[in-house]
């Protein structure tokens, strides 16, 4: 009966900008055994409202429950499962990569190809800012890997519907 295929869903939430709201949401996921792959919280134009973008996985029934359970939380104003619609999604990462003399040119070429930016540099490392879809980030990071990635900080996905509603 259950369709066991796991799907990845990007869910955008508008929530009351109050202490404890994030904990309610995280607690709902952990208490019911659902996954959060990434989560990003920031203010909106309305100081009373924050937007949370989260990426989760589950089969169809679990995703349905996640949407309903999120809606049920008193501090959640709106739940929008973007995966059901047309949407744009981006993630930003800062990557600190070893810049050995023999690799520097190659790294800069990759930065050029992927339209990234070197935002900091010292004698041994470059720090690169990369923005794009999750796929672009993975491709870029895979190419950098052989050079020696020291540290990565990723924002997690943020997304908006392409709809004007």
């Amino acid at each position: 009966m259950r369709t066991m295929t796991e799907e990845k869903h990007t869910i955008s939430l508008l929530v009351d900008n109050q202490p404890g709201v994030l904990s309610r949401i995280a607690g709902m996921f952990s208490g019911r055994g659902y996954n959060i792959e990434s989560l990003c919280v920031a203010a909106t134009m309305d100081p009373l409202v924050s937007r949370i973008t989260l990426v989760t996985t589950g089969d169809q029934l679990i995703i349905e429950q996640i949407n309903k359970q999120l809606n049920k939380l008193v501090n959640v104003i709106k739940v929008h499962d973007l995966t059901e619609t047309d949407f744009v999604e981006r993630e930003t990462a800062l990557v600190k990569v070893r810049a050995r003399p023999g690799h520097k040119a190659e790294i800069l070429r990759l930065v050029d190809i992927f339209k990234c930016k070197v935002v900091d540099t010292n004698t041994t490392h470059y720090t690169i800012e990369v923005t794009g879809t999750v796929e672009k980030l993975s491709a870029f990071l895979n190419l950098l890997k052989p050079m020696g990635i020291k540290e990565i900080a990723r924002t997690g996905s943020i997304a908006l519907s392409r709809n004007n509603k």
Partner: peptide, 14 residues
């Protein structure tokens, strides 16, 4: 107590 009872109340407030 608000942290403790978050998952066993419909809603709670400090």
């Amino acid at each position: 107590i608000v942290g403790i009872t978050r998952p066993c109340t419909k809603h709670n407030y400090l």
